[in-house]
Computed example of a mutant assay.
Amino acid sequence: MSAMEKAKGFKKSKAGTYLSIGTTAFGAFGVAKQLKTARKENDTLRLVDAAVSAVAVVTSLALLVRELKRLGDDDVLLG
């Protein structure tokens, strides 16, 4: 397997999935800041936007965890 094929397969590997989980979790900090600002300013529209963003982060994390469980021992980079 060439280096390019391995790089393309990284996204579907355990390491790539862990990286995606970390990136998504890091995005949660931005959502938390958005929620804090919306509450402080008493801005209902921003609060709704932040809540929807929070749901998106939770959903993304759930999908990534499910993908991690599916990978199991079938790691692309190991094979």
Rank of each mutant, 00 (worst) to 15 (best):
T17E: 01
N42L: 05
A3L: 12
A3F: 08
M1P: 08
L61V: 14
Q34K: 14
R70P: 00
G9Y: 00
V58H: 03
E67Q: 14
G9K: 12
S20Y: 01
A50W: 03
T44Y: 11
F29N: 08
G22A: 15
S20V: 00
V31E: 03
N42H: 11
S13F: 03
E41D: 11
A28K: 07
L63G: 11
E67G: 07
G27F: 06
A56P: 00
S53F: 14
V57E: 06
E5S: 07
A25P: 00
G30P: 00
S60K: 15
T23N: 07
Q34Y: 15
A7H: 05
N42Y: 03
K69W: 02
G30A: 13
K12V: 02
A3G: 00
K69V: 10
A15W: 03
R66M: 09
K33M: 10
R66L: 10
A7N: 02
V48G: 02
G9N: 13
F29T: 07
S20K: 14
L35C: 03
L61E: 09
A15Q: 13
V48M: 13
K12M: 03
K33I: 10
A32M: 11
G72E: 05
V65Y: 09
T23R: 03
M1K: 07
T24A: 09
D49H: 06
L71Y: 01
K36D: 12
V52R: 07
I21T: 01
K36M: 11
V58W: 01
K6E: 14
L61P: 00
G16D: 02
L45C: 04
G72R: 11
L61N: 02
A56N: 10
T24D: 04
G30V: 03
D75L: 05
A32H: 09
F10S: 02
V76E: 03
E67S: 14
L68Y: 10
Y18M: 09
V55H: 06
N42Q: 14
K36L: 10
V57W: 08
S20A: 15
S53A: 15
G9S: 14
V76W: 00
E5D: 14
V58K: 06
K6D: 13
T44A: 15
A38S: 14
K33H: 10
A62V: 08
G22E: 13
S60N: 15
A50T: 05
F10R: 06
V65R: 11
S2I: 00
M4C: 00
G27Q: 06
A54T: 08
D73C: 00
K12N: 11
L45Q: 15
E67A: 15
T59R: 07
L71H: 01
V65A: 10
L19T: 06
L45R: 12
L77P: 04
G27D: 11
V48T: 10
T59V: 10
A38M: 06
K69E: 12
A25D: 10
A62I: 03
N42V: 02
R39W: 15
L19G: 02
T17H: 01
A38T: 08
A3H: 08
